[in-house]
Computed example of a mutant assay.
Amino acid sequence: MTEASGGVLGECVVAEDPAGVLYLRFRRTAGGPPDSAGYTGLLALLGAFTPVVEAAPPDGALADVGGALRYFGRDAQGLASVIRVRALALHGVDCAIGAGANPMVARMAARRAAPGTTFVVDRGEEAAFLAPLPAAALDGVGAATARTLCGYGLDSVGRIAAAPLATLQRITGVRTGRELWERARGIDRTRVVPNAAARSLAAERSFPRDELSPEQHRRALLSLTEELGARLRGEGQVCRSLAVSVRYADRTGYATLTRSRTLGEPTAHSAALTALAYRIHESFGLQRARVRGIALRAEGLADAGLASRQLTFDPADERSRRIEEVADRLRERFGPGAVKPAGLAA
């Protein structure tokens, strides 16, 4: 396992690099994730090195660079350095990059990489890299599964890897047990699936220090949904789904969880966005988590004029939408801070 700082490394001859997958986390030098246009540009930048690029919005991407390593004659650290320099020069974005033999290891390695560095896990070193990590740090293990595993003394990835497969399957189920057993050994059967960045809008709130209060987390989400709702309505757009990303402190540093859900119907109604954002956030189960930032991305954008809306015959809903229209007009005239929900009042 090696870590390298930014800077283009010298040429090296690579026969077959064992770390052929990169996971990149993008951060603007001014702070926060890139905007939608910047994110699309970064994916295009990666496309100049490999056609196998998988978007992981709002601030990440997977790239299978096995062929690129041979073509450019560099190892994973060298190629990552070239990508980082171009991202910084062309888009004002720095990258924390993890490199591994498969997507899971690359994602987990990226959590150990600070901005401007690459953390490489070479093939054959996956078990040693994963073993000391807590069970909750294993890719794909949520809070509920981690609590179940810890209840049986399987509180680290190394202990999960050492447990008999049959034991894991009795505890978590046949399929989940098999997946845990393989992942704890660094085995990931998924592949990088090329896709395009969906049209989206994103916003983020960062806390000046690790924030423990769930009320402050919900306040940040309310602020984000109000902002995105107003932007969507201003542009005549609706969204089909929301993705919530929470960056929080754990034993390995800072980790990011992202989940998305589809709305009942395409909408730009702030109340509907807020309700879904709250449900996604609650599904993380991060009780007393030390949260540093929350990001929200509205995905699957479409023209509001072409979207259908289900009539509810709910007077409260109709009243809420009329108030929203008035608030939008006031914000347009007096500025974005002219009208705020009561939950955001100072």
Rank of each mutant, 00 (worst) to 15 (best):
P58Y: 01
L22D: 00
P51L: 03
A110E: 14
G158M: 08
L306R: 11
G41E: 00
A128F: 02
G124V: 07
R233P: 09
P341S: 01
R191K: 05
L154V: 03
R183C: 03
G124Q: 02
A327K: 04
A338C: 02
S270T: 15
A346R: 05
T118A: 10
F284E: 12
G335Y: 06
V65C: 06
A230W: 12
L330D: 04
T252P: 07
V339H: 10
A220Q: 01
R321C: 09
L263D: 09
A76H: 02
L62N: 05
E54R: 15
A230D: 15
E265M: 08
T312P: 14
S223Q: 14
G234P: 03
R279Y: 08
S156Y: 09
S270F: 11
E125P: 01
Q287W: 10
E211I: 06
Y71S: 10
A106R: 14
D188Q: 04
L130E: 01
A198H: 11
S156R: 08
P132G: 03
F49G: 03
A255P: 10
S270I: 07
L130V: 01
L46E: 01
P208V: 12
P266C: 09
P58K: 01
D328P: 02
I323V: 06
A55F: 02
A272Y: 09
V326F: 06
P34S: 13
A295Y: 09
Y23K: 10
G32I: 13
C12I: 01
V246D: 01
P33N: 12
C95N: 10
V93L: 04
T172D: 04
G41I: 12
G264T: 12
R84W: 13
R309K: 07
A346Q: 03
T148K: 13
A161K: 12
L276A: 14
